Amino acid sequence: MNLTVNGKPSTVDGAESLNVTELLSALKVAQAEYVTVELNGEVLEREAFDATTVKDGDAVEFLY
């Protein structure tokens, strides 16, 4: 899956889609429990991480 992460191209191997929690784990995001996630310009509530799917071509920003 090809994404733009914090403005840079990134690839997650072996996945066509992941939820936000899985993406944080796959990318080994440090202190993931404290990060705010913006997906395609929309800031996500932490409670929505498990239910929100990240797909090929999406833009993700991790805000600390």
Rank of each mutant, 00 (worst) to 15 (best):
M1E: 02
M1D: 03
M1L: 12
M1R: 04
M1V: 08
M1F: 11
N2C: 13
L3W: 02
T4V: 11
T4M: 12
T4N: 06
T4S: 07
T4F: 08
V5L: 07
V5C: 06
V5Y: 00
N6L: 03
N6R: 02
N6Q: 05
N6W: 00
G7R: 05
G7W: 03
G7L: 03
G7C: 08
G7D: 03
G7M: 04
K8E: 09
K8V: 12
P9M: 10
P9V: 09
P9G: 06
P9C: 12
P9D: 06
P9S: 09
P9W: 11
P9H: 10
P9E: 07
S10A: 15
S10H: 15
S10V: 15
S10T: 15
S10E: 13
S10I: 15
S10G: 07
S10K: 14
S10Y: 15
T11L: 11
T11M: 10
T11Q: 11
T11E: 06
T11F: 15
T11K: 14
V12R: 03
V12A: 03
V12L: 11
V12T: 04
D13K: 14
D13L: 14
D13G: 10
D13W: 15
G14S: 09
G14D: 07
A15D: 06
A15N: 08
E16T: 14
S17L: 09
S17R: 11
S17H: 10
S17D: 06
S17F: 13
S17Y: 10
S17I: 10
S17P: 08
L18N: 01
L18Q: 02
L18W: 07
N19G: 04
N19S: 15
N19P: 04
V20P: 00
V20N: 00
V20G: 01
V20E: 00
T21V: 07
T21L: 09
T21C: 11
T21F: 07
T21I: 07
E22M: 09
E22V: 05
L23I: 04
L23P: 00
L23H: 01
L24D: 02
L24Q: 00
S25L: 14
S25F: 11
S25M: 12
S25V: 14
S25I: 15
A26H: 12
A26K: 13
A26D: 02
A26L: 14
L27Q: 02
L27V: 04
L27P: 00
K28E: 08
K28W: 05
K28F: 06
V29W: 06
V29E: 04
V29R: 01
V29K: 03
A30M: 09
A30E: 12
A30N: 10
A30S: 11
A32T: 11
A32C: 14
A32L: 12
E33S: 09
E33D: 11
E33Q: 11
Y34M: 10
Y34T: 10
Y34V: 12
V35S: 03
V35F: 09
V35W: 07
V35M: 09
V35A: 05
V35L: 12
T36E: 07
T36L: 10
T36G: 06
V37L: 06
V37G: 01
V37W: 00
V37S: 00
E38L: 15
E38M: 15
E38G: 07
E38H: 15
E38D: 05
E38K: 15
E38T: 15
L39T: 00
L39R: 00
N40Y: 02
N40H: 02
N40S: 00
N40G: 02
G41I: 03
G41C: 06
G41F: 04
G41M: 04
G41K: 04
G41L: 03
G41R: 04
G41E: 01
E42Q: 14
E42L: 13
E42T: 13
E42F: 10
L44M: 05
L44W: 01
L44T: 05
L44A: 02
L44N: 00
E45M: 12
E45P: 13
R46Q: 07
R46M: 06
R46C: 08
R46L: 06
E47F: 08
E47M: 09
E47V: 08
E47K: 10
A48D: 11
A48R: 11
A48T: 08
A48F: 12
A48M: 12
A48S: 10
F49D: 02
F49K: 01
D50F: 06
D50R: 05
D50N: 10
D50H: 08
A51C: 13
A51E: 10
A51K: 14
A51S: 14
A51P: 02
T52Y: 06
T52P: 00
T52S: 05
T52F: 05
T53R: 13
T53I: 14
T53N: 09
V54C: 04
V54W: 00
V54A: 02
K55E: 05
K55Y: 10
K55W: 06
K55N: 08
K55A: 06
K55I: 07
D56T: 10
D56R: 05
D56P: 07
D56F: 05
G57P: 01
G57Y: 03
G57E: 03
G57W: 03
D58I: 03
D58Q: 01
A59R: 14
A59I: 15
A59M: 11
V60A: 01
V60K: 01
V60R: 00
E61N: 15
E61C: 13
E61W: 15
F62G: 01
F62R: 01
F62W: 07
F62C: 06
F62P: 06
L63G: 13
L63S: 14
Y64E: 11
Y64S: 11
Y64W: 11
Y64P: 13
